[in-house]
Amino acid sequence: MNIFRFLGDLSHLASIFILIHKIQTTRSCRGISFKTQAVYVAVFVTRYLDLFTTFVSVYNTSMKIFFIASSCYILYLMKVRFRPTNDPSIDTFRVEYLVGPCAVLALIFNYGYSVTEVLWSLSIFLESVAILPQLFMLQRTGEAETITTHYLAALGAYRALYIPNWIYRYFSEGYVDPISVTAGLVQTGLYLDFFYVYFTKVLQGQKFELPA
């Protein structure tokens, strides 16, 4: 564990708490893509199958359980508790265009031909593009509640912080995980436009609005 990875994990935790807080205080999941949230459940479930076979640390196990549980809880909030505030008509990104190619990539690039390894690989690729339905929705509506942008910023910062972690691990342990690194760079790249608007507008106290 190094400071970058720890801060990345904290940022990931923070993003989930911000999202739950947003939904509960506004009593609405307006502006949140259900498709993105559903993909996250798939990502966590497929990646953390090793929960039953491998023990790394109490930290590692607790975080895995938290990510699975909280992502399922968010789906519950969106589909049951605050269902009327969820508008599927603006959440139109075709998720099959993400899952299909990611499944093919996982079959080609993995660390071993076993069900768990291929699913692990799938989860890494899927995570890298999971935010697309959300960003697509943002682009369509052209604006976002400030709290939603804080959620997205924390979520984007999480994988971005893993990049210095991988550089650090390469030099300190000789550890390289090419699948995670490649996907992580793509994932962070997808946030660049968002980060630009977030830093130049939201953090200057303005509303998140995209130019027409």
Partner: peptide, 10 residues
Amino acid sequence: ETAEGKKDEL
């Protein structure tokens, strides 16, 4: 050393 069999990241 690669990530094979050593997945300690989240």
